[in-house]
Simulated scan of single mutants.
Amino acid sequence: MAMIVRDFEARDAAAVVAVRRAALPFEVVTEASLRFTAERANPAERYRLLVAEREGEVVGAANCGLAFESPEPGRAHTTPYVVPGHRRRGVGTALLRAAEEHLTAHGATEVYCWALEGSGGPEFAARHGYRPARSAHFQSLDLTASPLPELPEALPPAVELHTAAAWQGDPRPLFTADAQVTADEPSDVGAELDDYEDWLTRTWRHPLFDRELSTVATVGGEIAAFTAARTDGRTRYFTGMTGTLRGHRGRGLARLVKTDSLRRARAAGYTEAFTSNDGANEPMLAVNRRLGYEVRATEVRHVRAFG
């Protein structure tokens, strides 16, 4: 059967969502979020969303782009997703090669990709010259059955809880907080957030970002910690980032903001909560264990050098 790899079109959104959910059931993705990412990508990323089509059916997809926020030039990312029934039939290879050609043509010297353990992903990556780097753990929490911790009857001195919507008029303080915790996040591809307008476009206005369910803790009126929620508007909730600013760590604020957000998500009718943490981020993994999350799968980031 003939197969083609081509660029994503808006009409592919439903099919690509189905591919992503079949290949990686622990994330939150919608048709609107796919279209948004493809349309609003920063030009410096050289972002492409590729689809593999066989006999008119979309059977795989791969996003790829330059890690333009990394302080080290030449780094890039891609991850192929293939419907389980079509694996080991050349779909992933075709997507990966198309992505690599695009990235190296725009200066990539190292390409990183994620591979889910137990899916054949790490073996696929090894066959294509990628070596394992660091791991991350997907965790989930059943909001319909799992008990959630109670919020304390009294918050610590000078601590107040808000939703991200409280900064609707001026989100810049949230950008500043996000930039600090992102710089400290464990990763083999670091990021420096220094473009406020780009952050407004791709983070603050992202269709999955739920300002009402994202919780922010302030101390003396200044942002000290936050958790950013992403939702599909129906049942699925994902913690995109939870961070505590330097000088406020070790006080339980990360657990506090996550508890508040989860409780409000459950009250809003969300039934499944997901998150992902770097395998070396033991403080956040411990917070999630105390909240009732369980590890469901591990993915390993792989890297291949070019040039």
Rank of each mutant, 00 (worst) to 15 (best):
E185N: 02
N288A: 10
R246I: 03
L148F: 12
R236H: 14
I4M: 15
R255L: 03
R289F: 04
E282W: 14
A2P: 15
R264P: 03
H128D: 04
L291C: 00
G243M: 07
E72C: 12
T109N: 14
G220N: 05
H206N: 14
A23E: 06
F26T: 13
T203F: 13
M284E: 11
W199C: 14
V58N: 10
R88T: 01
R48V: 14
W167N: 01
R21D: 10
A115W: 01
A125Y: 00
P132F: 12
F36V: 06
V216Q: 11
G221I: 00
A268M: 08
T144P: 00
T201P: 05
L256F: 05
A2L: 14
S140L: 10
E192P: 02
R11M: 11
G233W: 11
A133D: 13
R290K: 15
A183V: 07
A273E: 01
P84F: 02
N277R: 06
G107Y: 04
D178A: 15
L66Y: 07
H102C: 06
E212G: 11
R97P: 01
R230A: 14
L200P: 01
E100G: 03
R263H: 08
N281P: 08
L151H: 04
G279E: 11
N277K: 05
L50Q: 14
A76V: 09
R97G: 10
L213M: 12
E197P: 00
A305Q: 12
D178C: 15
R6H: 04
H137T: 10
G247N: 06
R6V: 00
P132H: 08
M1E: 14
R234Y: 03
R11L: 13
R205A: 15
A191C: 12
L193T: 00
F209T: 10
A280L: 15
T104G: 08
A179S: 14
A44K: 13
R35W: 02
L155W: 02
L141W: 00
A22Y: 00
Y270T: 09
G120A: 01
A98K: 09
G85L: 04
R87L: 07
V51L: 06
P173T: 09
V17R: 05
F8K: 08
A10Y: 03
